[in-house]
Design a protein around this nucleic acid. Structure first.
Length: 443
RNA sequence: GGCCUUAUCGUCUAGCGGCUAGGACACAGGAUUCUCAUUCCUGGAACCGGAGUUCGAUUCUCCGUAAGGUCACCA
């Protein structure tokens, strides 16, 4: 019977996590799912100084909203007794030793730090996505295992936890490839079997360097706040550095869990493309029905539009979704006055009601005619199609722009807006005619 | 600088000795009811360089070059 695969994601809660981190998490998760294994989340809070509870909470929250589930969860600091126990054992075994050295904090105090007794050999491991990697660990020297007998450091903690949690595949970011040889050495010193290692390429900042808070590392929580759909975001993240070998780009979670594997993961780093994320999000928006869209849109409506009726909102769904990439853009639309005129009569600049090649006198006549034509449309049958049917022949006759532009402008007060028939539909017969009459009289 | 890794359109990528080097995003042009958006069509756009191996290299090897990672009593 083959051993069950166990992967893990082991973030340290020292800051917001960006797309690269979550991609690493998702790939490790997917790899486990794909092979019927387990996925473990381990919070590496060994460094008390830098770890913050708020970041740990954020990780749990994001995992939940984007839907990455884990079979087991560990907090590394809770394993401290175990780490100390094995540190003692290593000292007893002679694979580690106490060294009296001056503290690095400049205090000049002499303290006991624990160093690894390096066997100084060449370590070779077969990376799951890069092939064999050989390192002469002599270069590493007797590296530090613990700050003192009670405070084990990263490498020791990682090795012990990976072993104790039964991790079979350590799938992590490329920045750890240099750490692997020394962790292998510790595994051996402790008499533990080795896991397999796979190092994922980095997700790069736009300038091709490693992402950091300073350089374009946008926290995933921020993308979520901006109104990207979790599934779309995850889909975009996943397709950055991995491809299915086909031309499919849009994937459901189930499809991803079936299709993913490490052999199609890229070796080179990649820049996360926000334009492409916009495209993914628009595609996901297209797949949603009106009710789903309305409930999401409501979360992003600004104060000024809070009073909007459900009925009006339902009619506005396509007007809005055709114009946004992320739901946060609804606020921008509102700020720029692209939505306000639907719920409040706009101030219309009379000079601009006239089509560029026409005269004010004609515009007034066209508006009067349009009003008459629309009056004949039954209120119950009032919609964009019936309004269009009523007005279209006349517009065709005297020039489309000559009549369509004044109608649209009188209704919206803006030079850019949805077409006049859609506007009339959303506004309703009564409001449409009121606005049209108002402008016509003043003209 | 040492060690390690990587290298196809602007970006994400397909390619696994022979292809007009394919797709997507972005971009440009055009069409669709006036404007905007949507939709549709069309177009431009890439194999880092040099040696080999081979009948034949984007593909294999080597050497350059460039980029990135890592060299903590952080993780």
């Amino acid at each position: 019977m083959t051993q069950q695969i166990v992967t893990r994601f082991a973030p340290s809660p020292t800051g917001h996590m960006h797309t690269g981190s979550y991609r690493t998490a998702f790939f490790a998760y997917l790899y486990a799912k794909r092979h019927g294994g387990k996925f473990i989340l381990r919070i590496e809070d060994t460094d008390k100084e830098r770890s913050k509870q708020e970041y740990t909470d954020e990780i749990f929250k994001v995992f939940e909203t984007i839907g990455i589930s884990y079979d087991e969860k560990y907090i590394q600091s809770e394993n401290l007794p175990r780490h100390r126990e094995l540190l003692q054992k290593m000292i007893a075994d002679g694979t580690a030793y106490v060294s009296k050295e001056e503290a690095k904090d400049g205090s000049g105090v002499i303290k006991d730090i624990i160093r690894f007794k390096n066997p100084n050999k060449v370590v070779v491991f077969e990376d799951l996505i890069r092939g064999p990697i050989a390192t002469d660990t002599t270069d590493l020297g007797d590296f530090v295992l613990a700050k003192n007998i009670d405070e084990p450091l990263f490498h020791l903690a990682v090795v012990i936890d990976d072993h104790d949690e039964g991790i079979t595949h350590v799938i992590r970011a490329e920045e750890h490839i240099a750490n692997t040889p020394r962790q292998i050495l510790i595994h051996e010193a402790l008499g533990f079997g080795l896991p397999r290692y796979g190092h994922l390429p980095l997700v790069l900042a736009p300038d091709k360097t490693k992402m950091s808070k300073r350089k374009g590392a946008i926290p995933v929580v921020e993308y979520l706040e901006r109104g990207y759909l979790p599934a779309a975001l995850l889909n975009a993240i996943c397709l950055c550095g991995w491809n299915p070998g086909t031309e499919q780009e849009l994937f459901t979670r189930e499809e991803l869990e079936k299709a993913f594997d490490l052999d199609k993961v890229q070796k080179a780093g990649a820049i996360f493309n926000e334009e492409k994320l916009n495209w993914f999000n628009r595609e996901y928006i297209k797949k949603m029905n009106a009710d789903e869209l309305i409930s999401v849109i409501k979360n992003y409506l600004p104060e000024s539009l809070a009073s909007i009726s459900d009925e009006m909102l339902r009619k506005l769904v396509s007007v809005i979704t055709e114009r946004i990439s992320s739901f946060g853009e609804i606020r921008e639309m509102a700020d720029q006055g692209e939505l306000g005129y639907f719920i409040e009569k706009p101030d219309v600049d009379l000079a601009k009601v006239v089509w560029k090649t026409d005269t004010a006198k004609n515009a007034k006549a066209h508006l009067a005619k349009a009003i008459a034509l629309m009056e004949s449309v039954d209120e119950h049958g009032w919609n964009s199609t019936t309004v269009k049917e009523a007005v279209w022949p006349y517009a065709e006759e005297v020039g489309r722009g000559n009549v369509l532009w004044p109608i649209r402008f009188a209704l919206s007060g803006r030079d850019k807006s949805p077409d006049p028939f859609t506007l009339a539909d959303i506004l309703g017969k009564k409001e449409t005619l009121a606005r049209l009459n108002d402008v016509c009289e003043k003209l």
